[in-house]
Design a protein around this nucleic acid. Structure first.
Lengths: 141, 141
DNA sequence: AAGCAAATCAATAACCGTTCCTATTATTCA
DNA sequence: TGAATAATAGGAACGGTTATTGATTTGCTT
């Protein structure tokens, strides 16, 4: 393993490979802890520190997306194209959200205030479609 | 102190009052730790837990705004109207940013995905105007 | 003002997510 | 193959925050 810069290819150690594959396999935006637990059975000597280290390396290399969650654990996403996330307050699942209106924020702020924006992190909280409809079934909102 | 609901009036205990006043006094978006340190000299028996508790109570009551920072401590803001924040990677100061384009996000997501959005949290990272211009003075970017 | 219940307090232990450390094992490549 | 390098497991340590405790203060009722 040589390179660590953004977007570079990482060589795959055994542990890195199973960790990467696990995140790619499920679109559930798992936390490091969840990745660890889901792999621990078949890999009894996997350690949590290794999971954290590899998830961070993979996201630095641009192969995964790290989703910072304001009031909870970071999550990781195999989808690396530009998109955002909503966390449901009821079921706690994380949903992908397309929002191209955010693309203009850096330029807007530069023009208005003179600051240069390098990273836009958005956290949406709400209630997902499924939870909304099961709420409605109870004629309660 | 009776009420805890959103926007209700809180009675002011002595400690709550000095904590609230301190946040209102400075527009620096201090962390709980910073509020604690800035008050500790004049109030030697103030405890950090009290600062946390009161800042959270005040923000639940709508008298302060709690700003979650993805990779650091939460910050508190005496300005409670709708606005957003940029943190400068160089000087680490937090700046207020006006961004009315975000107001339409809840409706957009409802229409596109069917989820109901209840809270929009934005974290902007970048380089502030002052740091940008001092960078330019070194003919280096 | 006295008595009492509720709120608040300081101090500190516990907690959680994450990173760091160390000795060991695996991988690379000359 | 063997020396250098990188990755690992396991667990300690860390920073930010919350929970617990027992003591103190406050507000209410009379």
């Amino acid at each position: 393993m040589k390179q660590k810069g953004q977007g570079r290819i990482l060589n795959f150690s055994r542990q890195r490979e199973i960790i990467y594959n696990q995140v790619m396999k499920y679109p559930t935006h798992p936390t490091a802890e969840e990745v660890y637990r889901s792999l621990k059975n078949d890999n009894p000597n996997l350690s949590l520190g290794t999971v954290y280290r590899n998830l961070n390396q993979l996201s630095e290399a641009g192969m995964l997306l790290k989703i910072p969650i304001a009031d909870g654990s970071d999550r990781f996403d195999g989808r690396t194209d530009n998109h955002y996330h909503m966390i449901c307050e009821k079921c706690l699942r994380v949903f992908d959200v397309e929002l191209n209106c955010l693309d203009s924020i850096p330029q807007t702020v530069i023009e208005a205030e003179g600051h240069r924006i390098t990273r836009v992190t958005l956290n949406l909280k709400g209630v997902c479609r499924e939870c909304l409809s099961s709420e409605n079934n109870k004629t309660e909102q």
